[in-house]
Design a protein around this nucleic acid. Structure first.
Length: 447
RNA sequence: GCCCCCAUCGUCCAGCGGCCUAGGACGCCUGCCUUUCACGCAGGUAACACGGGUUCAAAUCCCGUUGGGGGUACCA
């Protein structure tokens, strides 16, 4: 049981889950699942900011949404305050750490004092080396390290101290985290060493970067998992995509069930170079997962997004109609928030013309007005059935020797592209369709 | 500045000394399908940063250069 792997995801309670953090959580989870190890969730609330519990819940929700479950925890670092204090106090007692006042002047005391911070006494002329699980041998000289703070003057431990103590206490065997923490590793190792604790194996994941190749930042970049969730990306797609940032299976198959990913995952084969979070590729993954949904499932998942879509009046979205054209929409979207684009003309009272479409599909179209006139005439009396409507439009086009569908489509939907036209038109009904056709003709005449 | 890390198509990965005239995916382009758009299918475009070694043989190992990034807080 001693070689049982234990890894952890240790976010700080910021109130949202960053895509980079999510990737870190995912890799830890994959590693645990791949090795039969234990995945622990620990909240690094070193400031003891427990009144922000609801912010922590957001992180749990996003992890659950991604299908990342944990075996132990959540544990709160703030609950180990006394233990942390004891460790710091012991270090001071042993002379391996010292007090410092508000002006950063050394205070010669062997007991912890209020309003005094504690700095760790970094040994001189030593080399701290460790074998990083993804990077291999990494080493630092202690002479390059300053005596860092391990205990704040407000009576709380710093990340460095709490991290070292908790990993040791929890028997964490592998600490897999972002590369931004690489240079803090020697400090943690020094702490561990001083405590006489065994160091976990560290594995530093390559950073996720933006197009400028800078670390993804909350301010500049679109980084909240919640945002992607609210845009209707499927969690399986997001998880699959995230798994491929910094790692790839040796058989080149990218989109695959999570069980296979777990099977193929190998921490030692994780990349070292930073990766760009490419939304275009995410879109492709998401589209693929959406297409794989059953039609019923797609409709059920799309409905809430349509109902929340501000383009539609209350009650305008007819679930039966959504279901009727569901499969056509399903193969055209990459995220659920986009379904409204395809249903828009169907559920809206008055279509808004896309200027480019209107110009191309009607103004510049060959005999656009004549097509509309012919179709209006046919639609006034023909049987109101999709196939009949389709034939009528074709026949008008044949007589005029032009392609007649696009002008009609633009007139009725306001746009050039879209799902097959005639079934929705049948659903729309004669009156509304005719009204749109006539309105388009008037608009055309006024150009 | 100092410390550390990194370097294969525009992007994400495969490649772990010979199978590489470098493979897959996204994107982009072309064609097919289709009186719309998309899906699908078939093609195409495009990379081992540079310079030295080591070796019979290097994208793969070593060194250097250049470039990029991270850290350098009583944030984590």
């Amino acid at each position: 049981m001693t070689d049982q792997i234990r890894c952890r995801f240790a976010p700080s309670p910021t109130g949202f889950l960053h895509v980079g953090s999510a990737r870190t959580a995912l890799f830890n989870w994959l590693f645990a699942r791949a090795t039969g190890g234990t995945f622990v969730l620990r909240i690094e609330d070193t400031d003891g900011d427990r009144n922000r519990l609801e912010l922590i819940d957001v992180i749990f929700e996003e992890l659950q949404w991604l299908g990342i479950d944990w075996d132990e925890g959540p544990l709160y670092q703030s609950e180990n305050r006394e233990r942390h204090r004891q460790v710091v106090s012991d270090m001071v007692g042993r002379g391996h750490a010292y007090l410092v006042n508000a002006d950063n002047e050394v205070v010669d005391q062997t007991e912890l004092l209020a309003d005094h911070a504690v700095r760790f006494r970094v040994p001189k002329d030593e080399t701290v080396a460790f074998d990083d699980a993804v990077r291999g041998e990494v080493s630092f000289e202690t002479n390059d390290l300053e005596d860092f703070v391990i205990w704040r003057s407000n009576g709380s431990p710093t990340f460095l101290l709490a991290n070292a103590v908790d990993d040791a206490d929890m028997g964490i065997t592998h600490a897999i985290r972002g590369e931004d923490l690489l240079s803090s590793t020697p400090k943690v190792q020094l702490l561990l060493q001083e405590m006489g604790a065994v160091s976990p194996v560290y594995g530093h994941l390559p950073l996720l970067v933006n197009e400028q190749r800078k670390k993804l930042s909350k301010r500049r970049d679109d980084v909240s998992i919640a945002d992607y969730r609210s845009r209707g990306y499927l969690p399986e797609a997001m998880r699959n995509y995230l798994a491929l940032l910094g790692w790839g299976p040796d058989d080149d198959i990218e989109i695959r069930p999570i069980a296979e990913i777990i099977n193929k995952f190998d921490l030692s084969r994780v990349n070292k170079a930073a990766a760009f979070f490419d939304v275009a590729k995410l879109d492709h993954f998401s589209a693929t997962y959406i297409q794989a949904l059953s039609e019923d499932d797609f409709v059920a998942q799309a409905l809430p997004f349509l109902q929340a879509d501000e383009r539609f009046a209350d009650g305008a979205v007819d679930p039966a109609a959504v279901a009727m054209f569901g499969s056509e929409v399903q193969q055209r979207v990459s995220k659920l928030a986009d379904v409204g684009d395809w249903y828009e003309w169907i559920f809206v009272d008055e279509v808004t013309f896309d200027e480019k479409s209107f110009a191309k599909g009607l103004v510049k179209a060959n005999k656009g007005d004549e097509v509309l006139a012919g179709v209006i005439e046919a639609f006034e009396t023909c049987e109101w059935r999709a196939d009949v409507l389709n034939e009528a439009v074709r026949s008008v086009g044949d007589h005029l020797e032009v392609r007649s569908q696009v002008p009609v489509r633009v007139a009725v939907t306001g746009k050039q592209g879209g799902i097959p036209l005639f079934e929705p038109v049948e659903w729309l009904g004669r009156e509304r369709t005719l009204a749109r056709l006539r309105q388009a003709r008037e608009r055309l005449a006024s150009v």
